[in-house]
Simulated assay, not measured.
Amino acid sequence: MTELSWRGGAAAVVTLTFDVDAETPILAAGRQYADHLMVMSHQAYGPEVGVPRILELLAELAVPATFFVPGWVAEQRPGLAATIVEHGHEVAHHSYSHRAPTSLTPAQERADFERALAVFDAQGIEIAGHRAALWEATRTTLELIAEHGLAYDSSLMGDDRPYLLEVEGGPVTELPVHWSLDDWEQYAYLPEPQIGSVIESPRQVLELWRAELDGMRHYRCLFNLCLHPFLSGRPSRLLAVRELIEYAQSCGDVSFARCRDLAALARADRTLRPRKPPSVVADPTVYPD
């Protein structure tokens, strides 16, 4: 029987994803940082230096990727999203302001979500998927994704394979993430605002990610790598990314996909049974605020 799964016959599928946050996470921590030139330049490195370097690497190795871009970043740098698309990659929704949905009211989240969509629409960028700022999705997040006809989300951690969520307004394909495959946990550092406190060796990070890829090849999983251009766009770190991609290519049983293409394959995979989003009732007498 011919395999018609989301993996398409591969042992594991790699989605290379880049969150082009630029200044937004810092501004979300406090607008006063707009006047802190070290911090703003630290973040601007991502779109201005990291992204061109990453696009060059992806072209050289002939692998596709997905770039999650906040609407504010696309608005401030009008040619950025178009350049990514022109290179054959996907641009996806990553909020407008990079404020966590869990910190917003439903009305505020809707306004932020739709403001980003308006930016991409004005730039002629077709959006198929979404990733919540800080991965802090809410029920409103999933409902907005379905309401606006997006195909997938990539914010939750309920599996290490794609899964389908039953959401009011229509199904949403989830492409799950995990902290172990996020470069923020490895490299992020600023004294203020504090976004992390460790600057890890790229050799150790490469070892971690190679081990995870091998495990996912064994268990037939999705290797959904989340990178930030202001972090992994740095020279030694991008060389480690290159080595990781070349290792995956050498395995012979790993494929690469844009998130939108993988989501379409997952939606067509009849072995994936729809699930409901997490629904936990916390008794206030047991778990007080």
Rank of each mutant, 00 (worst) to 15 (best):
S236G: 06
R53W: 02
M38A: 13
R210G: 01
V91T: 09
T140S: 05
A12G: 08
E147L: 12
M1E: 13
V198F: 09
L244F: 14
G170L: 12
A11W: 05
V177F: 04
E192A: 15
Y96V: 06
V91G: 01
V85E: 13
F67W: 03
D182W: 00
T66P: 05
S180T: 15
A116F: 00
Y45G: 03
A29Q: 15
L37S: 11
E212S: 11
T285R: 14
I125Q: 02
A151S: 14
Y45E: 06
A137S: 12
M157I: 10
R258G: 01
S5Y: 01
V177S: 05
V49Q: 12
I26G: 02
V119G: 05
V63M: 05
R53G: 01
V205I: 04
V205Q: 04
W72F: 12
V20E: 03
S97T: 13
I127Y: 01
G79L: 12
A151Y: 00
V91F: 08
A29R: 15
D35A: 13
R110Y: 00
I125P: 05
L239S: 02
I145F: 03
A248D: 04
H94L: 08
A29Y: 10
D35S: 14
V198M: 05
E200G: 00
R115N: 12
V119F: 06
L16F: 02
A268E: 14
P274Q: 11
G170S: 11
A59P: 04
C226Y: 02
G170M: 12
D283Y: 05
S250F: 06
L206M: 01
A59D: 14
I26P: 00
L4G: 13
G169A: 10
G79M: 13
E185K: 08
G8K: 11
A257T: 03
L164P: 06
L61A: 07
R234Y: 04
Q123T: 00
Y187Q: 03
H94D: 01
A44D: 05
Y287R: 15
F113H: 01
F68K: 02
P277R: 07
R99Y: 08
M216L: 15
L80I: 11
G8R: 12
M216W: 11
A74V: 11
T285L: 13
T105D: 10
P64R: 07
S97F: 01
G8W: 07
P176L: 02
E166N: 14
S250K: 02
R99H: 09
L222M: 05
